[in-house]
């Protein structure tokens, strides 16, 4: 018991020392304000019912925010670049493909009747395995940006075309089911998938926090990391599997959002001003929560859902991607 307490205290003190960065405190307040506003603005009717609904949605949004932030950071670290993300490399297109294949074989009704816990477990395992199988060979050969980018785009196009091929073969009712999983939607969250993915994201967050120093070493590149005694291959496999699982955890709940991770990490890096993982994990999670929860509050209560959040994030994130790409070309 004492050991557990001691452990907890150590974690807490590490988080605490990372929080000495003033910008992180600002970010934390922003995230907190977004959360409070999300829960409180325009609260009407049966309070218990409405609040319950909002809390579930809030937890889901926060979970997606965290999953996207940490999977992007870890992916960028093991590929030692700051532009590519799991989504740009086609991982959430892969997830959509898995869903489409499921609908194809089970039919829309069969798909909807699947047990959510088993389904999510199977998805996580499959995504982890595919992430390792597809990306480890690329990673082992090269971390050259251009080749990775090319590989990712080719894979993404492949997964998307396969999905659209399959959705042309199924009947219109099933197609409607496919459509609902292929587009980002922050309003209707598949909340029955929440518990398993919530646990997964929490575990992933703890694992990443524990590995923050090893991840710092990973940033120095494969050879230097091995020289410093990091079992590169082992960690790369484990971390890729973790990324696959986290992509499943975020895509299952809200659908694919290609540029969210990129936007979040790029913003966080500029705000915290370091690439140390202790600070980047906290910073990116806070930015991500602010963006999703705050954005959703703003869009639904101020702009009355004139623009879906997903589209807005893709728009801003896409511009950020181009900006990063061009500024790197000039450098």
């Amino acid at each position: 018991m004492l050991l557990v307490q001691l452990r907890f205290w150590l974690y807490f003190s590490a988080v605490h020392s990372a929080m000495r960065n003033v910008n992180l405190i600002l970010l934390a307040s922003l995230a907190l304000v977004s959360i409070v506003l999300f829960l409180s603005v325009n609260l009407r009717g049966n309070l218990q019912f409405v609040l319950e609904l909002r809390v579930v949605k809030l937890v889901a949004l926060v979970q997606v925010a965290v999953a996207v932030a940490i999977s992007t950071i870890v992916f960028q670290t093991i590929t030692t670049n700051r532009i590519l993300t799991p989504s740009i490399m086609g991982m959430d297109a892969l997830f959509v493909l898995i869903q489409t294949v499921l609908v194809f074989f089970l039919g829309g009704l069969g798909f909807a009747a699947l047990n959510s816990t088993y389904k999510s477990l199977a998805e996580v395992i499959l995504m982890s395995a595919l992430a390792c199988g597809l990306f480890l060979p690329i990673l082992r050969h090269t971390t050259a940006m251009t080749l990775m980018l090319l590989g990712g785009i080719v894979l993404g196009v492949l997964f998307r075309s396969l999905s659209s091929l399959i959705s042309r073969l199924i009947d219109p009712n099933d197609f409607a089911v496919v459509q609902s999983v292929s587009y980002a939607d922050f309003n209707t969250i598949e909340s029955n998938f929440l518990p398993p993915f919530l646990i997964l994201t929490l575990v992933a967050l703890l694992v990443c926090w524990k590995l923050r120093h090893v991840l710092d070493v990973f940033l120095l590149g494969r050879e230097t990391a091995i020289g410093l005694g990091v079992n590169w291959e082992l960690y790369a496999v484990g971390l890729l599997a973790l990324i696959g699982a986290l992509v499943a955890a975020s895509t299952a709940l809200v659908g694919p959002v290609t540029f969210l991770g990129l936007l979040v990490v790029a913003l966080a890096e500029r705000i915290v001003g370091t690439q140390r993982h202790s600070q980047m994990f906290i910073g990116a999670c806070l930015v991500s929560i602010t963006l999703l929860v705050g954005g959703q509050t703003l869009l639904s209560h101020v702009f009355y859902n004139a623009v879906p959040l997903g589209i807005l994030i893709e728009f801003v994130g896409g511009i950020a991607f181009l900006y990063l790409l061009f500024s790197r070309m000039r450098a």
Binding site: L219, G221, E223, L228, G229, Q275
Partner: peptide
């Protein structure tokens, strides 16, 4: 074990670019 070897030998690889701002 790689970590044991890292306490006995250090390698400076050929000119690799250090990613990030350090």
């Amino acid at each position: 074990p790689s970590s044991e070897l890292a306490r006995r030998m250090a390698i400076m690889p050929q000119d690799n670019v250090v990613a990030g701002r350090l």
